[in-house]
Design a protein around this nucleic acid. Sequence first.
DNA 1: TATTGTTATACTCTATAACTATA
DNA 2: TATAGTTATAGAGTATAACAATA
Lengths: 169, 169
Amino acid sequence: MSIKKAISQDISLDGVKPAVTKEQIVESISTIEKSAGFLIRIAELTVFEELYKRFKGGEVSIGEFTVLRAIGLNPNLRQGVLADALHIKWPSMTKMVNSLELRRLLKRVVPLHNRRSIELVLTPEGEAVVAEYAPEFKNAETEIFTTLDDEEYLQLENLLRKVAGWPHK
Amino acid sequence: MSIKKAISQDISLDGVKPAVTKEQIVESISTIEKSAGFLIRIAELTVFEELYKRFKGGEVSIGEFTVLRAIGLNPNLRQGVLADALHIKWPSMTKMVNSLELRRLLKRVVPLHNRRSIELVLTPEGEAVVAEYAPEFKNAETEIFTTLDDEEYLQLENLLRKVAGWPHK
DNA sequence: TATTGTTATACTCTATAACTATA
DNA sequence: TATAGTTATAGAGTATAACAATA
């Protein structure tokens, strides 16, 4: 149930005055939301829930799609570098890459000049999966950010880049 | 290892030309980051990692602190309303509240006018925990958002509110 | 019959440390 | 000795459905 639905139901509960009024909730929100860190968490969950709807039951998870797309954009990206860039722990990345390799969506390549390292490339099947789900991802984004106009979207993007330590304007 | 360290190590690897150059990484970042949804995820992980450092080994987890603080700000908040507001599933909230109640940090109160519902209030011990960790949380925020000036911080806050569907300007 | 919360189960994700192979 | 990745393990968090109590 959504917070909005919960609130509207609460304030009309059986005609009895509720313990928590809409005004109290909004007040609490105003207080809690002073923390941008908290808001990032809530926004992230909002994004996840929207993406989850579109990816569940599909061929790849949201995380797997993100990894595959990153590899598609950066063929021969080193596994550890990719893990660090996406904030995925190395053991988790190993497991994910194992699974994706078993499903023939990517290949591990060991370069001659440094046989400790592993580079990742998509198979044609992997590229097909990226192509298939990219529109879903895009549509989810459109849905998530409907409340922002173009300028606000770009502003948000740039501010988040700064927070994450990525290149920005 | 941080992405920056990984990159700097990679490009100077044994004096051998690496398969992935810094320029390629930056290029990939520029492409991937077109997605604000993805960036919210990365920013959220950045926030989490900073908070995690400060909360690990402590009396409460980050999630528990967030719940306790919300209850402190909103005494007698209904359990389900709180769960929805924080995007925590009801079964998870039940388990967390069980644990917090066992540790005497909060109390469940069943109101007379609706004995299905459960209201939450902090115990004095719970209030002490909130008071103890609130500065840690604040300091983490300061650390996380050093790259933003005051105006940018407020902008980010407002944009995230819009995305999350919370009240905004 | 709808609401509120709990239980049970299975699954994913994560953190951590110990390990192998290579440089 | 340092780097790159893997394995093993234990814990936290989540989704889902079935359940009980109350309205």
